[in-house]
């Protein structure tokens, strides 16, 4: 193996280039499997020094409702990619709605996620807030579900309407999940 002597390189963490970079993630799903993409990306963006906003709307409210956030479910119904626990078999579509299937699939998925050292939703939100992330709830969803700020996870900064969200994410990169 050949080695070459180089001048000492200092990694370019590029704090300046990221200045002003913003990411806004709209979380609109309340299924366990659809909660994670937004959380993981938000956490990664914050770790890269990117200003990050999460906006919860419609079924995404289940991620921030105190009464539900600890208990998201995963359903194999309508998911043609659902793997069997062993081998490379797909779960037959006819089996997906069988009683007990959702509970079993949820339990398995939680187990796999925990096995990777990835936290459950409430703890993940706590980490995102600790890393400087911002959580917002959708006004129309709150009105539809008859909930107010007291029903929501404490670190949700406010219930805001769509135009406020558009205003505050001026120049941001946007993800709809």
């Amino acid at each position: 193996m050949s080695t070459q002597t180089v001048p000492a390189v200092v990694p370019n963490f590029d704090d300046e280039a990221n200045a002003g970079r913003k990411l806004a993630i709209i979380c609109s799903k309340g299924n366990l499997d659809m909660a994670y993409p937004g959380l993981i990306l938000a956490n990664a963006a914050l770790g890269e020094g990117v200003e990050t906003h999460l906006f919860f709307t419609f079924w995404g409210f289940d991620m921030i409702l105190k009464s539900r956030m600890n208990d998201l479910k995963f359903s194999p119904v309508g998911n043609t990619a659902m793997h069997m626990p062993v081998g490379d078999m797909r779960v037959p579509a006819s089996l997906a709605p069988v009683p007990g299937m959702q509970a079993m699939a949820t339990k398995m998925m939680k187990h796999q996620i925990a096995g990777l050292g990835v936290p459950e939703v409430p703890e993940f939100l706590e980490q995102i807030v600790a890393a400087g992330g911002h959580l917002w709830a959708c006004r129309m969803s709150a009105d539809m579900m008859h909930v107010d700020e007291s029903d929501l996870y404490d670190d949700v900064e406010a219930i805001i309407n769509a135009s406020t969200f558009i205003e505050m994410t001026n120049g941001a990169q946007l993800l709809f999940i």
């Binding site: 193996m1 050949s2 180089v6």
Partner: peptide, 8 residues
């Protein structure tokens, strides 16, 4: 692989 000199 590269070798650099840092603080000697």
């Amino acid at each position: 692989m590269s070798v650099a000199t840092i603080e000697g």
